[in-house]
Design a protein around this nucleic acid. Structure first.
Length: 423
RNA sequence: GGAAGCGUGGCCGAGUGGUUGAAGGCGGCGGUCUUGAAAACCGUUGUGCCGCAAGGCACCAGGGGUUCAAAUCCUCUCGCUUCCGCCA
């Protein structure tokens, strides 16, 4: 959410920022409502001030048993009616303002490359060489079925399209990856491990920016205010919702492994083959709370922490900076990490590392104090996958496959797997 | 799911319609004293919004209502505790 005062005072800057993101919002209604709000507010507060004074007077007069009291009560009854009318108007104005501001995306950082679509994203660097095969590498869905470690048919039978089961060494491989990632981030990168609820209320989703605009992509309970998380970012960022943190504790680093649930209505027909895009998938997520002045530096460190995983797995990967048009709703600046999958012959996004500035902090009301008595300020929030499991699985399976259809277990995972080859 | 009780500031805790944004205590911060520390004493100690400012308004789990006036009364929601039922 953008600050009301900031929009009011920087209207051209806001328009420009929104345009860069491909958002053509008409801010006219905003300005009108904002002005009207302040007028009505001042009016009603003057009346309330008067009522407060006279009410005190009435208390005194009643104590003195003065006949004046009843007259004043009648007067105040009329003032009360006026207040009620103005308060009602104010409530409507504020609801509309909230509706508008909650739907406005965050503004991009000035350093983000301008672009019209994902085609304008910038590949920053590519690490590692392409693996040479003396046979035609198979896609993971073929490897998985032949080794009986991924079962697509039964997944569909149980739940429907875009569901699958991991079996035996497949399930174990994913468990090994999760354990390895959590160990690396907690032991080497200083993240505190969290195991959050997988179901949250709507306040959390407003806090991180999924609601109110993107409810289409979320699963929720028909009767209660229960929503399945689309990413651990939601519960972990909202841990500190409505709190004022001690500035000396910042930056705070958290890592959480959770399943993620997405309806994927927006990507119907896209990536239907294999395990690349399911309605349920697992992910290890990194979340940071930072001082405003350090957030871009923290983003670079976050990105490095995410890249440590493909590095350890010996996977070829690249870093892509998203252009203005491809930034998500809440993001100020984002880098994707992609790994190469020789079987399906494409780069797979396994992490998306973003700085959200104070956008989420403002929505979720997460503040900090620099000094014990200092005025509270909004923190900056950041997050990135570290990493998403299905696509990491794909990359491991396809890169480590052998001519006979077996898969060699990467060195780092062997202590977790208790086997060298999946056959 | 049923019944009863409860929900006040960082924490504990007073307060059942009228100078209560809220007593008192603890904790925190500043000071006096001390070589230093402790103790003692004094002072200070919530957030948001509107306003150039002076200042004003709002907030006692959350929403709605009654009243000239609500932490205090009514109502709904949420949460906590205890008992019963159920369950991993």
């Amino acid at each position: 959410m953008l600050d009301l005062k900031f929009i009011r005072e920087n209207i051209e800057l806001v328009k420009e920022g929104l345009a860069k993101k491909g958002e053509k919002a008409d801010l006219g209604p905003f300005l009108e409502l904002d002005a009207r709000r302040r007028t009505v507010l001042q009016e009603v507060e003057t009346l309330k001030s008067e009522r407060n004074k006279v009410s005190e007077e009435i208390a005194r007069l009643k104590k003195e048993k003065s006949p004046e009291a009843d007259k004043k009560v009648l007067e105040m009854r009329q003032v009360g009616d006026k207040i009620k009318l103005l308060d009602d108007e104010l409530r409507i104005i504020e609801e509309k303002l909230t509706e508008i501001t909650l739907a406005l995306p965050n503004l991009p950082d000035p350093t983000v490359p301008l672009g019209q679509s994902e085609k304008d994203n910038v590949v920053e660097k590519t690490v590692g060489d392409e693996k040479k095969f003396d046979f035609a590498p198979q896609p993971h869905w073929e490897l998985g079925e032949k080794l009986d470690i991924i079962d697509f048919e039964r997944g569909v039978k149980m739940s429907g399209t875009r569901f699958y089961l991991l079996k035996g060494a497949g399930a174990k491989l994913q468990r090994a990856l999760i354990a390895m990632m959590l160990d690396v981030h907690t032991r080497k990168h200083g993240y505190g491990e969290i195991l959050p609820p997988y179901i949250v209320n709507h306040h959390c989703l407003i806090g991180t920016g999924q609601l109110p605009k993107f409810s289409d992509n979320l699963y929720h309970d028909a009767e209660e205010d229960f929503w399945l998380i689309p990413t651990a970012e939601v519960p972990v960022t909202n841990m500190y919702r409505g709190e004022i943190l001690d500035g000396s504790q910042l930056p705070l680093y958290h890592v959480a492994y959770t399943p993620c649930f997405r309806r994927e209505k927006m990507s119907a027909g896209k990536d239907v083959r294999g395990i690349k895009r399911g309605h349920q998938f697992d992910k290890v997520e990194l979340v940071k709370f930072s001082l405003p002045e350090n957030s871009n530096q923290e983003l670079q460190k976050l990105l490095a922490d995410a890249c440590a995983i493909p590095e350890l797995l010996g996977l070829r990967y690249r870093i892509v900076q998203l252009c203005t048009a491809d930034l998500t709703f809440s993001s100020v600046k984002t880098y994707d990490v992609e790994v190469w999958a020789p079987g399906c012959n494409e780069w797979l996004e396994v992490s998306s590392c973003s700085n959200f500035g104070d956008f989420q902090a403002r929505r979720a009301n997460i503040k900090f104090r620099r000094e014990p008595k200092a005025k509270p300020e909004f923190v900056h929030t950041l997050n990135g996958s570290g990493l998403a499991l299905p696509r990491t699985m794909i990359a491991v399976m396809e890169n480590y496959q052998n001519a006979d259809g077996t898969i060699t277990v990467p060195e780092v995972l062997r202590p977790f797997m208790g086997m060298d080859v999946i056959k």
